[in-house]
Design a protein around this nucleic acid. Structure first.
Length: 392
DNA sequence: CCTCCACTGGAAACCTAGGCTC
DNA sequence: GAGCCTAGGTTTCCAGTGGAGG
C-alpha cells in the first residue's frame, strides 16, 4: 500500500475534532470580545453621531499585535452598519496587505463603487482620491478603517491622510471619518501636526492581554471550534501560559490552539492533549526559524554556514577566515571583518546564533559565536540556493 | 597594578539600485 | 534620457576595552 493510501486511510479512521475550524482563524470575529467592552463602548460613543448623519471624530487605535484592535474596530463598525440600516458604509483596508499607496486607494474606491472601473495602473493618486470623494458625496456617510496605518505613513508619507482628514466640503453632504489602527506607538512622531490633530481627535490604547484573560478567550474559542470535551483544561492553561509569556498576543495564542488541533487530528488522537500543543508550538517555532534562514541575504547564509562548521563555538577571527574561504570558493565578494561583526549582531538579534563578547585577557577580546539552528535545517535551506550548493 | 592583544562598535564616507521628475 | 533623491548595505577609520599574563 502506498503511503498516500495510508494517509487517507488514517484520516478516514481518525476522529474529527473540529466542529467549526473557522472560529480559530485570524479572520474570525466573535460577537463578543471579552476584556474589550470598555474600548468597544467608548469607540461606539465616538461613532454614534454617524447615525444622525453628522461626522464622527476621527479615531486612532494603538496597541501591539494581537491586542484586539482590528477585531474591536470591525465589530463596532459592523454593528453601526446594522443600526443604520446600511446607510452608513464602512470600509476596511489593511495598508500593508494592499502594499502600495495606489493599491490601497484603489481598494477603497472599489469598495465604495464596486462597478466602477479603476485600472490597476495608470491613474494618478490625485485622480483616485477624487473618485473616492465623489463616491462619498453620493453616500450619507463613510467610515474608513485603515489598518497598519503606520506602515502606510512610514513608506509613503502622510499625504493621503492629509487629503482625507480635510476632505470635509469636498464630500458634503456625505462625511468621511477615519479609524486608524497602528501597532507602533511612535508613529505619530513623523506626522504632519495638522494631520495629527485631526486624525487623533480620539485615541485609544489597547493593552496586551494577561495570561488569565487569554485563558478565558481561548476557552470560549475552543468551545466554539472543537467538539465538546475534545480540549482538556490543561491544554488551555498551557496555551495561555505560552502565549502570555510572549507578549499577550491573542492572535498567536489562537493560532497555536488551531495548529494543535490540526496536529492532534492528523495523528488520529481523540483529544487535544498537551503533547499536541507542544508539538504545534515546536512546529511554529521550527517554521519560524526555517523561514528566517530562507529569507537571509546570501552573505549572511554563508556566514552562518561557516560558523556551523565549527564543532565548538568559533571567535570572530577564526570565523572570518572560515567565511572568507567559503566565499572565495564560490566566487562571492568577501566582506570586511567589520561588516561580519555587524552581521553577527543581526543574526544574534534574529535568534539564529548567540554571540557573546568574551575576553581572553592578553590575547584580546572577541565574540564567541554559537549557532542555534540545527545543521539539518540549515543544510536544507542552503541546498535550495544554487550558488551555495557545493558548500554543503 | 599595568600592559597590550584582538577585537568591538560608533561615525561617517562611499557605493549602488531603484524610483521619481522634468 | 539626464539629473536628482533616497534607502540600504558596505567600507574606512578609529577610539575604546576586559582581563590573563607579566
Amino acid at each position: 500500500m502506498s503511503s498516500v493510501d495510508d494517509i487517507f486511510k488514517k484520516a478516514k479512521q481518525g476522529k474529527v475534532l473540529f466542529q467549526d475550524r473557522k472560529a480559530l482563524t485570524p479572520e474570525y470575529i466573535p460577537d463578543e470580545l471579552p476584556f474589550r467592552e470598555k474600548q468597544m463602548s467608548e469607540i461606539a460613543e465616538v461613532l454614534a453621531p454617524a447615525l444622525h448623519y453628522s461626522k464622527p471624530s476621527n479615531l486612532l487605535l494603538y496597541g501591539k499585535t494581537g491586542t484586539g484592535k482590528t477585531a474591536v474596530a470591525k465589530l463596532v463598525v459592523r454593528k453601526l452598519e446594522e443600526q443604520s440600516n446600511n446607510t452608513i458604509i464602512t470600509i476596511y483596508v489593511n495598508t500593508r496587505t494592499a502594499a502600495t499607496e495606489y493599491r490601497a486607494l484603489r481598494e477603497i474606491a472599489l469598495n465604495l463603487e464596486p462597478d466602477s472601473e479603476i485600472p490597476q495602473t495608470g491613474l494618478s493618486i490625485g485622480q483616485v482620491t477624487q473618485r473616492i470623494f465623489d463616491a462619498v458625496r453620493k453616500r450619507k456617510g463613510v467610515i474608513l478603517i485603515l489598518d497598519e496605518i503606520d506602515y502606510l505613513v512610514y513608506t509613503y508619507g502622510d499625504d493621503i491622510l492629509y487629503d482625507f482628514t480635510r476632505a470635509g466640503d469636498k464630500t458634503a453632504p456625505g462625511f468621511l471619518s477615519l479609524v486608524g489602527i497602528s501597532n507602533d506607538l511612535k508613529f505619530k512622531e513623523g506626522l504632519d501636526p495638522r494631520v495629527l490633530s485631526s486624525l487623533g481627535e480620539e485615541e485609544f490604547v489597547f493593552p496586551p492581554y494577561t495570561t488569565e484573560e487569554l485563558h478565558l478567550i481561548l476557552s470560549e474559542r475552543a468551545t466554539a471550534a472543537f467538539k465538546p470535551g475534545v480540549v482538556p483544561e490543561s491544554t488551555i492553561n498551557l496555551c495561555a501560559a505560552l502565549a502570555g509569556s510572549e507578549h499577550g498576543d491573542a492572535r498567536r495564542a489562537v493560532d497555536l490552539l488551531r495548529i494543535s488541533g490540526e496536529v492532534a487530528e492528523r495523528e488520529g488522537k481523540a483529544r487535544v492533549e498537551e503533547e499536541s500543543l507542544r508539538k504545534a508550538s515546536a512546529k511554529v517555532e521550527h517554521d519560524r526559524v526555517e523561514e528566517g534562514l530562507r529569507s537571509l541575504p546570501l552573505q549572511n547564509k554563508i556566514i552562518i554556514l561557516a560558523a556551523s562548521k565549527f564543532t565548538s563555538g568559533p571567535n570572530t577571527g577564526e570565523l572570518y577566515i572560515a567565511y572568507s574561504n567559503l566565499a572565495k570558493k564560490i566566487g562571492v565578494e568577501v566582506l570586511t571583518q567589520r561588516r561580519l561583526s555587524g552581521i553577527l549582531a543581526e543574526l544574534d538579534l534574529l535568534g539564529l546564533i548567540q554571540a557573546a563578547v568574551v575576553s581572553k585577557g592578553r590575547r584580546g577580546r572577541t565574540k564567541r559565536v554559537k549557532v542555534l539552528v540545527d545543521y539539518d535545517v540549515l543544510a536544507r535551506v542552503i541546498r535550495e540556493d544554487i550558488q551555495l550548493l557545493e558548500l554543503v
